[in-house]
Design a protein around this nucleic acid. Structure first.
Lengths: 171, 171
DNA sequence: TCCCTTCAGTTCGGTCATCGAACCGTAGCT
DNA sequence: AGCTACGGTTCGATGACCGAACTGAAGGGA
């Protein structure tokens, strides 16, 4: 039916969600935003996405109110998750946990812990110690045993040590 | 880097997950499988996906152990979710709930209830009455107030009345 | 001041995926 | 024998994505 990327005939909120978030690279861009990446160049270097595609994805994410673009210096911008973007965390986490379980041959790549009590989260996002599901701002990420140092861009290097989600990753 | 659909340079289980489940139409195919659709023709009629694309998606889903293909009559097949496929439910549900919240102008399209106690699930998938997160086999789906009858294929019609997930949708 | 680098894109030609429509073979029904 | 349904396959056209090169503004160093 539809031409290109939308699912026109579907009266379904999953389809509506996928029209934004289901395009190639978009989820990985958002993952990096949760990890604390904020700048065009860092996203590009970490993802190896064609620049034109990255530009396109960022503008649609901004247009749809998932990212906010601010000029931190003349001509240079930062992209930050809005509340609408933050609300995508459960979906993104669930998908990555499925990947950890079913498609991570050498063991887990990353471990997410509730920062307040330093307990590893369950695949559902629940902190077993507190009985709560912490929001991304309360989550720390550490590399797991299955993570291999394949990349050497600045973002990949920074992600090799413990880091609080949503806080700026680069010095 | 990668050509086409994979995210080769990323040592990340989200990327690994998206290589399978992130292609166009794949999530909607899986959604229909959770809803109880099992046959090629029903999927095609409900999704308006090009037949060649549907064939390709189904074979990769089978190859990756997410769907199981069985011959229910000479030359005719049924596709059913395996355990690995069932494990995608939290991700699929989370994404559709995000769509319900942020991209459903006329109200919710579908309501999911815990069949055992007939209580509507929270966006997290939790049943507030039981305090548990029911698996898809224990969930009923009913049309919500925002759902409009735009399609008239057999699947869409069947989905207009209450239905238990994973049970065959067509008579 | 001049040169060099960084950032954040844009432009472009080529390749790959997806599109709609038509075609095909098997099986059951009448 | 003829018709329909199912589950695909084939094909040419269109659109998305690819890598590489180019741009333009700003900052830093000599």
């Amino acid at each position: 039916m539809g031409l290109g990327k939308n699912y026109d005939g579907q009266d379904c909120s999953l389809a509506r969600a996928l029209e934004i978030v289901g395009e190639r690279w978009t989820m990985l861009v958002l993952r990096d935003c949760f990890f604390g990446v904020r700048r065009f160049t860092d996203l590009q270097a970490h993802l190896d996405v064609p620049r034109a595609v990255l530009t396109e994805r960022l503008t649609t994410l901004v247009d749809d109110g998932i990212l906010e673009r601010t000029e931190y210096r003349r001509g240079r911008h930062e992209y930050r998750l809005t509340q609408r973007g933050l609300d995508l965390w459960p979906a993104l986490f669930a998908l990555s946990q499925w990947g950890e379980r079913h498609r991570a041959p050498n063991g887990r790549r990353r471990i997410f812990t509730h920062a307040a009590c330093d307990t590893a989260l369950e695949p559902t996002g629940l902190c077993p110690a507190c009985g709560t599901v912490p929001p991304p701002a309360d989550i720390d990420m550490t590399p797991g045993p299955g993570m291999r140092p394949v990349r050497d861009d600045a973002v990949s290097v920074a992600l090799r040590s413990r880091h609080r989600l949503l806080t700026p990753l680069m010095a």
